[in-house]
């Protein structure tokens, strides 16, 4: 069950996308997310969809693997779409007692659903092709200029890399704890809603205890290795841009231009 969460998981493979500089991938993801809100017509969705599909194919991450990550947020997707369908005013297409479904509601629901879907797939593509270490070092170098305005960039990225590093560990631990409690007759699959919530207490208590213990040990280990924060700290693998990164930036720019331009054109036509 817990293994199905692919958001934040790395999928090892040898592709151009994997080898790209993490700064490129971070910028790309950010711009992709922004681009989702730059267009108003269906053409934008088609272009974004095609581009996303191309990147997925190049990345060699199986699509099935990505879809597994969606499982956990189906609820959010359906929830959003549900409210959009029933609570948008406009021309009614279907009416039953107090329930009205409008044309506008259906289109916004479809677009909202698609937008969420793209956002999630897009950002999980980044985490699937970038190791947590690369990701945070990319963030640290990419945002270094913010230090001038006293943003603790290094501390934040260190916290992030530790958090990301702990996700799989804690997930595995949750799995084991659940098994240990199941071995004592705990039941996580049956019962009423409240019972199920109560059934999680025997999982969360040991999990928190172990998380705190681990955090303590890690802090001790870091201190033992003379970690002293940002000042004078060097990197084992300093980030350097290659040619492919330049090309990626260009393609990214092209994508934004195309998506905005076609949207304007189509809007003019309608």
């Amino acid at each position: 069950m817990l293994r199905d969460i692919t958001l934040g998981q790395y999928y090892p493979s040898q592709s151009v996308i994997h080898r790209l500089d993490p700064r490129v991938k971070l910028t790309a993801t950010l711009l992709f997310i922004v681009s989702m809100f730059l267009f108003h017509t269906f053409v934008g969705y088609i272009i974004a969809g095609i581009c996303l599909a191309t990147v997925i194919i190049i990345s060699k991450v199986p699509f099935k693997f990505m879809m597994k990550g969606l499982k956990t947020i189906w609820f959010l997707l359906i929830f959003t779409m549900f409210f959009n369908i029933f609570l948008t005013s406009g021309t009614p297409v279907f009416q039953w007692r107090f329930i009205t479904v409008t044309k506008e509601g259906l289109t916004t629901a479809a677009f909202m659903g698609l937008r969420l879907f793209f956002l999630i797939i897009g950002s999980s593509l980044m985490t699937l092709t970038t190791t947590p270490n690369q990701l945070t070092s990319g963030m640290e170098t990419g945002l270094r200029w913010m230090k001038k305005i006293h943003v603790p960039v290094h501390e934040i990225s260190m916290m992030m890399s530790i958090a990301l590093r702990f996700i799989p560990i804690l997930m595995e631990e949750t799995d084991r704890i659940m098994k240990a409690q199941q071995a004592r007759g705990a039941d996580f699959e049956e019962g009423k809603f409240m019972d199920r919530i109560k059934a999680l207490v025997p999982v969360f208590v040991p999990l928190f205890v172990s998380a705190f213990r681990r955090a303590n040990e890690l802090a001790m280990a870091m201190e033992a290795r003379c970690y002293h924060g940002d000042e004078g700290r060097t990197s084992m693998k300093p980030l350097r841009y290659a040619r492919r990164d330049g090309i990626a930036y260009l393609l990214l720019l092209l994508y934004i231009v195309v998506i905005v331009a076609t949207d304007r054109v189509v809007l003019g036509l309608l």
């Binding site: 704890i177 098994k179 240990a180 071995a183 007759g185 025997p202 040991p206």
Partner: peptide, 24 residues
């Protein structure tokens, strides 16, 4: 019984913890 007891102990007292299995 799993290797680490830390994976299963969660109650406030020893007695309550041991009772978890049979009460299930």
């Amino acid at each position: 019984v799993f290797q680490y007891p830390e994976y299963q102990l969660f109650e406030t007292t020893v007695e309550k913890d041991v009772e978890f299995g049979p009460s299930n």
